Simulated assay, not measured.
Amino acid sequence: MFNLIVRHFEWDAEHGEIGADRLFEHTDGPLAAQFKNGEVPDYAKLSGPPCLFMTEGTGDEECRVGQVSNVRRVGRDITFDFTLARDIPPLTNKVIYDGRRKLGMDDWEFSRNHWAVKNVDLFRFIVGAIQPRRSAPAVFKIPENEKVDVRQLSVMMPFAANFSDVYAAIKQAAEEMGFICHRVDDIWENHSIIQDVVELIDRSRIVICDCSTRNANVFYETGIAHTLGREVILLTQSADDIPFDLRHLRYISYLNNGEGRQALAVRIKDRIQTIMG
């Protein structure tokens, strides 16, 4: 059994209210009677079951599980305090909407401010609705919450000497666009170099990956950047160096000479401008 409270704005405080005439809407009559003394709502008893707090909608709106307390009638409203369960992750209205039949809800409830009581095991539903978390990587660590520096740009490229001028051109272009530019050899924060690589990629807004010479490390780092959802700019001196799995993506071709590097810098700045809007 659980309370369901739907309103049109988010649950961002510890106190709430809803019209008294909306109490027990979309609640079966015999079930509502269990929470009344005659015709008067038993507010203390209503505080017992867990509560699903929702905003109106059937999409990505966030809904939370928690508990109501100190329920009382004030004029035309029912006011209450509430707490949100910290150990239960937020759900979306889409998840609730997809499971509305199991929860005893009808379509109208997603667009109506009301307080209903449902004779359903809410926690059993949640266990089935929440997908298990994927296993954390074993080779390196990523934080549970990302902290992207919107002005951090990182470069993944071979460390060969003939790429030094290429990196210098990229770094100058990035700095002219207001970015901080780093290559992994610029930093040493961990005992493991792969951890430095991953942390640099993870905090970067944009990652530039130079696929020239088919460097295996760059390919690995490109995969990490794509997996972490970073904006990736692919470079190459030869189209043949772009792996088959990446050829459906746009890339910048360049020549490793003075004129070619100047042209590369211009195209990188144009791409950064597009990404940043």
Rank of each mutant, 00 (worst) to 15 (best):
A225H: 09
I194L: 15
H191P: 05
D210E: 03
N215C: 08
R203H: 05
L200R: 02
T213R: 10
Y220E: 12
G223L: 04
S192F: 08
F219I: 15
S204F: 07
R205S: 14
R214T: 11
V197H: 02
A225C: 06
D202Y: 04
C211G: 02
R214A: 11
I208H: 11
I224R: 06
H226W: 13
R203E: 04
V198I: 11
N190M: 04
N215P: 06
I194W: 01
N190D: 12
I208S: 09
N217V: 10
N217W: 13
N217A: 15
D210V: 02
C211R: 03
C209N: 07
V207P: 09
S204L: 08
E189F: 04
G223S: 07
S192D: 15
T213N: 10
C211Y: 10
C211I: 07
G223W: 04
W188A: 12
A216K: 15
F219R: 13
V207F: 15
C211T: 03
G223V: 07
E199N: 11
Y220P: 08
I193G: 03
D210R: 05
F219C: 12
R214K: 15
C209V: 12
S212M: 08
S192R: 14
E189P: 01
I206Q: 08
I201G: 02
S212E: 10
G223Q: 06
S204G: 05
C209D: 06
R214Y: 02
I193F: 09
E221D: 12
R203C: 07
R203L: 04
V198R: 00
E189A: 10
V207A: 12
Y220N: 10
I208Q: 11
D202A: 13
R205N: 13
I193E: 05
D196T: 02
I194V: 14
W188V: 06
R203D: 05
S212I: 06
A225Y: 10
V198Q: 00
I193P: 03
N190K: 09
I208D: 10
R203V: 05
H226L: 11
F219D: 14
Q195R: 01
Q195S: 01
I194P: 02
W188T: 04
C209W: 07
R203I: 04
D196S: 03
L200V: 01
N190W: 03
Q195I: 00
Y220T: 14
S212F: 13
H191Q: 15
V197N: 07
I194D: 01
F219W: 09
S212W: 12
E221W: 10
H226C: 01
F219Y: 14
G223N: 08
D202M: 05
T213P: 02
I193W: 05
V207K: 14
I194C: 02
I201L: 06
V198E: 00
I193V: 15
V197P: 02
R214L: 06
H226A: 01
A225E: 10
S192M: 11
H226F: 14
N217I: 11
T213V: 05
C209I: 03
V197A: 09
V218G: 13
I208C: 10
Q195K: 00
A225T: 06
V207G: 11
W188K: 08
N215A: 11
A225L: 08
S212P: 06
V197K: 02
D202W: 03
T213Y: 07
N190T: 06
I201W: 05
I224T: 08
V198P: 00
Y220A: 14
I194Q: 01
E221M: 09
